[in-house]
């Protein structure tokens, strides 16, 4: 159990370090960087590699945005296995709804209670 924390730290940290390299060396905007990582997560899951990473590193693999691509693909694959071609479309949001729904709900609540402040301190 304790080792999972260590692995979570290292795997999560490495994924973020790759993101930083894409920004600094690759001169990508944050939007381009995150989009690239999401696509990478989807491809890794297609090759069956992301699930083992989650088993190994826990939140180190589920918290970075790559897991978003992974879970979308995962849902699509699971439904495709059951229902064929149609499942590719219908299954996508089966697994992954929590990140988006949480962001939407908290975005709405945030908009109601906070104001944008420009001060640096």
């Amino acid at each position: 159990m304790a080792m999972t924390f260590v692995f979570a730290f290292f795997v999560g940290g490495i994924i973020c370090a790759i993101g930083q390299l894409l920004m600094d060396y690759g001169k990508l905007t944050p939007g381009h960087t995150l989009s690239t990582l999401v696509v990478a997560g989807a491809i890794l899951d297609g090759m069956g590699l992301y699930e083992p990473l989650i088993n190994f590193a826990g939140a180190g693999a589920t918290v970075p945005i790559t897991s978003f691509g992974n879970s979308l693909t995962h849902g699509a694959l699971a439904e495709a296995e059951r229902h064929g071609l149609v499942g590719v479309l219908t299954g996508m949001f089966e697994v992954t709804s929590s990140g988006i729904s949480a962001a939407v709900v908290f975005g709405f609540i945030g908009a109601l209670i906070f104001k944008p402040k420009g001060n640096v301190d």
């Binding site: 920004m23 944050p30 906070f114 944008p116 402040k117 420009g118």
Partner: peptide, 28 residues
């Protein structure tokens, strides 16, 4: 005005992007 200009030209005020050393701060 910092907030009004930044939101238009760059990102929302509370968005956590890393500004490089070359960036400048819009004055209010």
């Amino acid at each position: 005005q910092h907030n009004a200009v930044e939101r238009q030209f760059r990102y929302p005020i509370n968005y956590g992007s890393q500004k490089p050393q070359t960036a400048q701060w819009t004055v209010t």
